[in-house]
Design a binder for these strands. Sequence first.
RNA 1: GCCGAAGUGGCGGAAUUGGUAGACGCGCUAGGUUCAGGGUCUAGUGGGUGUAUGCCUGUGCGAGUUCGAGUCUCGCCUUCGGCACCA
Length: 804
Amino acid sequence: MKKYKHEAIEAKWQKKWDESKQYEVNLADAPRPFYNLMMFPYPSAEGLHVGNVFAFVGSDIQGRFHRMNGYDVFEPIGFDAFGIHSENFALKVGTHPSKLVPENIKNFRENQLKRAGNMYDWTHEVDTTSPEYYRWTQWIFIQLYKAGLAYRATAPVNWCPSCKTVLAAEQVVSGECERCSTVVTKKDMAQWFFKTTAFAQKLLDNLEIIDWSEKTKVAQRNWIGRSEGAQVTFKLDGHDEGFEIFTTRPDTLFGVTYMVFAPEHPLLKKIVTEDNQQKFKAYRKRVATMSEVERQAEGLEKTGVFTGGYAINPVNDERVPIWVSDYVLMGYGTGAIMAVPAHDQRDFEFATKFGLEIRAVISPDGRVHPLEEAYTGKGVMINSGSFDGLDSTEGIRKVTQWLAEKDLARFQVNFRLRDWCISRQRYWGPPIPIIYCDKCGTQPVPDNELPVRLPDIEDYQPDGSGDSPLKRVSEFFYTTCPTCNGPAKRETDVSDNFLCSAWYFYRYPSTNFNDRAFEAALTKKWLPVDLYVGGNEHAVLHLLYSRFLCMALNQIGLIDFEEPFNKFVAHGIITKDGGKMSKSKGNVVNPDDFIKRYGADAFRVYLMFMGDYLEGGDFRDEGVPAMRGFLDRVWSHVTGDDLDEDEPDDSETLYWLHYTTRTVTNDIKRFSYNTALARLMELLNHISRASVKNRVVNETFVKLLAPFAPYISEELWERLGHDTSVYDESWPKYREEHTTRKTIEYVVQFNGKVRAKLPIDVGLSQEEIETVVMANERVKTLMEGKEIVKKIFVPNKLVNLVVK
RNA sequence: GCCGAAGUGGCGGAAUUGGUAGACGCGCUAGGUUCAGGGUCUAGUGGGUGUAUGCCUGUGCGAGUUCGAGUCUCGCCUUCGGCACCA
């Protein structure tokens, strides 16, 4: 018996898989398609992160498992290589990204991904930076533009001074840049947006019908932020026109004692009176220079100024002062609110500070109480004219209806979700395919001129001017109008990297088609994706954008489904020493070292055994050699002496075999890989201790191990005398009657405490079991001087005697 | 502040519907093999008690429901994640 040598075995099977095209799928003819997708990596110079390996292996196990269950599994991989990350790294090391990226991709593909042992179909690889790919990224942009789902607007957008570009709302995490944690500021700029808000309700509703990790859905629900209420019209005192506010609590309209406008609100031009102009302008200027973070740091203390203007409350024609404060945001609702200090904590703080009236109109019990803070709960309406005594929940509806009849209000739903700002003032991305002509206006680049190639330039440093470095390239910037042939200018911004990744899974099956983004028949056959595995950090980024784009493509009529991923599973996070891995801490796990030393299989098995796949776990270096030990034991057992060719008949072996098959099957289905491996270890412990040398047992074991450890499984399968792949075998079946033992160790409890254990044959009646239990010596001793009050019988588990 | 998830030995972690808490692995202890080291195999391993196949105790804390609670209910504490002046 030779020792298990992983280097030779892994090299051998990589070669064999390549040569036999084992993982290539006939996409057009596959009878049972299963699209197994994993989030494609960004090919960094540091190499594949252990978190990527963890994610991919967990996904690959599903691919291999489905394959053995008769599916035609398509498991592609690619590279998400555009974006600031690549560009910044290139700037740092002084090598052009167009040179760096292919090197990194090669390293990822040849030295890392292939070794990890996933069943990728390399004939459908995607690289978002190749013109053959980004041509279609641009084409998609144009389709959205033509459908009215992409528009250009000047708006206060999020600007990262460090990245020197604007960001989408989703890329700002509590006021800081998602990538570099720099405090983001607001800047008025003309930007391209995708109308994600057009699908806000659908993005929310469809969460009910897709099979996604609950935590991902929750994050999306929070982000979409639907709230129901009313849009109410207030008149401006002394003006003809009025303005609208949004409120979720129209039942508190009688408690309005002032109004607040966001400092940027355009109507303030008319509202602010002459003698209040100066302090208003000073206030607005101060707010404009502050970042979101600074505003929130000062947020405990409310600030604001009086405008001098008044509004008329539509419910009681009262004249209420209009104030300006930065606690009202221009980007949500109408940018103006009605303030009800008695029932809103923010309004309460503001009113307290500026000495404004606080008038209670909702009471938990119908009586008036002095308020220490705002009462935000429900209750009975008071001080509310004819609505007095009404339940506030009903009041919301009734007050809105009453005002609606007078055309002063309407029911309204608001979302926090914003349109997706996709312009980036950077170099390393797909240029936005738009041409501006003074005569003909904004023109999409005609299809036959795609791709708009990213010019190869030496100086691609962002300058922070608010323009992309491409604007400095006159051959690029100056062009001709596709309509009138006159002089025109190109859009110089590139698109957000998240646009590249929002559609890559449509491209995988269609990589052989150069005349279309995705081939209709293949798309119909393979999409939506059957299973998508990835990190939850993309819950409101990549995953939200992908869902939006799918709905957009569906509306345009390019695809016939609304949701791109039928099932999404969010895997956990791997930590080291309980915390995040980072270069500064020097605790980054390098997969290559472990794969080299202990083998890819041991590394895979350890990653999956470490903890719950959906929860993640803490990586310990000692874990990998421990799993190598397990594989060594597997090796020596399976490659051992001559095998018994008969069906196994020993009842204990039958039990272990069928019980393990059942639990491993179910555990893989629910991504419980750590327990599946534990069961395999138990089976191995049994068969090696009991020296079970049986073909059926060994072959079943290898098949059950195969999704986790592909190289050793193929090798062992071959050594068991087969000349075909173990992945062409079908998944083992179990027989229910063998999954439990013939004799069960019953627990006898007295008053719920375990007092005895005795073996009892399966299949006895309750009376027979009781007889056996009562005849037991130990039970008899315990029963002395006691009386049975109650007997509880749990089949195949326990007997509990309640005695006194 | 709101929403969500979690808290179990020295450690990573198990425990479908309430039914033997600690599976499996690491580490540790003892022993076999070995000149030794390493490797490997066998046994043991929550705490307390000590003649025990015994008894007591034990799943963040405090109550409760139940014959029986890691699991269910109520009230706290802690950690992590999401949202956050969103009207």
